[in-house]
Protein backbone atom coordinates (compact mmCIF):
# COMPACT_ATOMS: atom_id res chain seq x y z
CA UNK A 1 0.00 0.00 0.00
CA UNK A 2 1.02 3.59 -0.46
CA UNK A 3 1.57 4.90 3.04
CA UNK A 4 1.80 8.64 3.61
CA UNK A 5 3.97 9.67 6.53
CA UNK A 6 3.82 12.84 8.56
CA UNK A 7 6.16 14.71 8.95
CA UNK A 8 6.23 14.22 5.18
CA UNK A 9 10.01 14.52 4.91
CA UNK A 10 10.86 12.07 7.67
CA UNK A 11 13.54 9.66 6.44
CA UNK A 12 13.07 7.47 9.50
CA UNK A 13 9.35 6.99 8.92
CA UNK A 14 9.93 6.41 5.20
CA UNK A 15 12.44 3.72 6.06
CA UNK A 16 10.06 2.05 8.51
CA UNK A 17 7.32 1.94 5.85
CA UNK A 18 9.69 0.26 3.40
CA UNK A 19 10.80 -2.23 6.02
CA UNK A 20 7.13 -2.94 6.70
CA UNK A 21 6.72 -3.95 3.05
CA UNK A 22 4.86 -0.89 1.78
CA UNK A 23 5.60 2.08 -0.42
CA UNK A 24 6.30 5.31 1.47
CA UNK A 25 4.63 8.45 0.12
CA UNK A 26 7.06 11.23 1.01
CA UNK A 27 7.76 14.82 0.12
CA UNK A 28 11.27 14.08 -1.18
CA UNK A 29 9.78 12.37 -4.23
CA UNK A 30 7.60 15.37 -4.99
CA UNK A 31 10.55 17.73 -4.64
CA UNK A 32 12.56 15.32 -6.79
CA UNK A 33 10.03 15.72 -9.60
CA UNK A 34 10.53 19.48 -9.44
CA UNK A 35 14.28 19.04 -9.55
CA UNK A 36 14.11 16.84 -12.63
CA UNK A 37 11.52 18.98 -14.43
CA UNK A 38 13.42 20.81 -17.15
CA UNK A 39 10.78 23.53 -17.31
CA UNK A 40 11.37 24.73 -13.74
CA UNK A 41 14.15 27.31 -13.57
CA UNK A 42 15.38 27.11 -10.03
CA UNK A 43 14.35 23.88 -8.36
CA UNK A 44 13.77 23.14 -5.62
CA UNK A 45 14.07 26.68 -4.32
CA UNK A 46 10.53 27.58 -5.26
CA UNK A 47 7.13 26.09 -5.37
CA UNK A 48 5.70 26.67 -8.81
CA UNK A 49 2.62 28.58 -9.82
CA UNK A 50 0.97 25.22 -10.47
CA UNK A 51 1.62 24.13 -6.87
CA UNK A 52 0.02 27.32 -5.59
CA UNK A 53 -3.01 26.84 -7.83
CA UNK A 54 -3.33 23.20 -6.82
CA UNK A 55 -3.43 24.26 -3.18
CA UNK A 56 -6.61 26.22 -3.82
CA UNK A 57 -8.48 22.92 -4.01
CA UNK A 58 -7.78 22.52 -0.30
CA UNK A 59 -7.13 25.94 1.24
CA UNK A 60 -8.96 29.22 1.04
CA UNK A 61 -7.49 32.00 -1.08
CA UNK A 62 -7.15 33.99 2.14
CA UNK A 63 -4.55 31.63 3.61
CA UNK A 64 -0.96 32.92 3.78
CA UNK A 65 1.14 32.28 0.67
CA UNK A 66 3.49 29.94 2.54
CA UNK A 67 0.59 27.75 3.66
CA UNK A 68 -0.69 27.53 0.08
CA UNK A 69 2.77 26.66 -1.20
CA UNK A 70 3.28 23.92 1.37
CA UNK A 71 -0.19 22.41 0.92
CA UNK A 72 0.25 22.65 -2.86
CA UNK A 73 3.41 20.57 -2.62
CA UNK A 74 1.80 18.10 -0.25
CA UNK A 75 -1.50 17.74 -2.12
CA UNK A 76 -0.25 15.04 -4.57
CA UNK A 77 0.91 12.98 -1.59
CA UNK A 78 -2.51 13.24 -0.03
CA UNK A 79 -4.24 12.22 -3.24
CA UNK A 80 -2.25 9.01 -3.71
CA UNK A 81 -2.16 7.92 -0.05
CA UNK A 82 -3.95 4.68 0.83
CA UNK A 83 -2.91 4.72 4.47
CA UNK A 84 -1.03 7.11 6.71
CA UNK A 85 1.13 7.38 9.80
CA UNK A 86 1.08 10.67 11.66
CA UNK A 87 3.80 11.20 14.21
CA UNK A 88 2.81 14.06 16.51
CA UNK A 89 5.04 16.25 18.67
CA UNK A 90 8.18 15.26 16.80
CA UNK A 91 11.16 17.60 17.16
CA UNK A 92 11.91 19.75 14.07
CA UNK A 93 15.01 17.67 13.34
CA UNK A 94 12.82 14.60 12.80
CA UNK A 95 11.32 16.28 9.73
CA UNK A 96 9.04 19.27 9.55
CA UNK A 97 7.41 21.78 7.24
CA UNK A 98 8.40 24.78 9.34
CA UNK A 99 4.91 26.21 9.59
CA UNK A 100 2.55 25.28 12.43
CA UNK A 101 -0.58 26.23 10.47
CA UNK A 102 0.38 24.07 7.47
CA UNK A 103 1.24 21.28 9.88
CA UNK A 104 -2.14 21.33 11.62
CA UNK A 105 -4.08 21.79 8.41
CA UNK A 106 -2.39 18.96 6.55
CA UNK A 107 -3.01 16.56 9.44
CA UNK A 108 -6.66 17.58 9.29
CA UNK A 109 -6.73 16.84 5.54
CA UNK A 110 -5.24 13.39 6.13
CA UNK A 111 -7.84 12.60 8.78
CA UNK A 112 -10.62 13.71 6.46
CA UNK A 113 -9.61 11.15 3.82
CA UNK A 114 -10.83 8.29 6.01
CA UNK A 115 -7.93 6.01 5.12
CA UNK A 116 -6.35 3.68 7.71
CA UNK A 117 -4.33 6.05 9.87
CA UNK A 118 -2.08 5.59 12.85
CA UNK A 119 -1.53 8.62 15.04
CA UNK A 120 1.33 8.11 17.40
CA UNK A 121 3.10 10.50 19.71
CA UNK A 122 6.84 10.92 19.35
CA UNK A 123 8.62 9.44 22.32
CA UNK A 124 12.32 10.01 22.60
CA UNK A 125 14.92 7.90 24.41
CA UNK A 126 14.02 4.45 25.73
CA UNK A 127 10.35 4.74 24.78
CA UNK A 128 11.17 5.16 21.08
CA UNK A 129 11.16 1.37 20.75
CA UNK A 130 7.49 1.26 21.78
CA UNK A 131 6.71 3.87 19.13
CA UNK A 132 8.52 1.86 16.45
CA UNK A 133 6.74 -1.34 17.57
CA UNK A 134 3.34 0.36 17.20
CA UNK A 135 4.25 1.62 13.74
CA UNK A 136 5.47 -1.79 12.61
CA UNK A 137 2.33 -3.47 13.99
CA UNK A 138 0.17 -0.99 12.09
CA UNK A 139 2.10 -1.62 8.88
CA UNK A 140 1.83 -5.39 9.34
CA UNK A 141 -1.94 -5.03 9.60
CA UNK A 142 -2.25 -3.26 6.25
CA UNK A 143 -3.05 -5.43 3.19
CA UNK A 144 0.02 -6.08 1.06
CA UNK A 145 0.48 -6.05 -2.69
CA UNK A 146 -2.22 -3.50 -3.50
Amino acid sequence: MKVLVYPPNSLILADLVERGGHEPVVLMREIGKHVRDAEIDAPPLNVTEEDLKRALRYVSVEEPAGVKGRIGLLAPLLEQAEASIILTDAPPTFGCMGCAVSDEFFKFLIRKRNIPTLEVRYEGGERMKETVDRIMAFLAGLPKGK
Binding site: D41, A42, P44, L45, N46, V47, T48, E49, D51, L52, A65, G66, K68, G69, R70, L73, G98, C99
Partner: peptide, 12 residues
Protein backbone atom coordinates in the same frame (compact mmCIF):
# COMPACT_ATOMS: atom_id res chain seq x y z
CA UNK B 1 12.36 34.46 6.67
CA UNK B 2 10.42 31.34 7.55
CA UNK B 3 10.12 29.68 4.17
CA UNK B 4 9.93 32.23 1.37
CA UNK B 5 10.66 29.37 -1.01
CA UNK B 6 7.18 28.01 -0.27
CA UNK B 7 5.54 31.32 -1.24
CA UNK B 8 6.76 31.19 -4.82
CA UNK B 9 8.55 34.55 -4.60
CA UNK B 10 12.15 33.73 -3.75
CA UNK B 11 13.28 33.94 -7.37
CA UNK B 12 11.81 37.45 -7.66
Amino acid sequence: SCGTEYSGMQWI
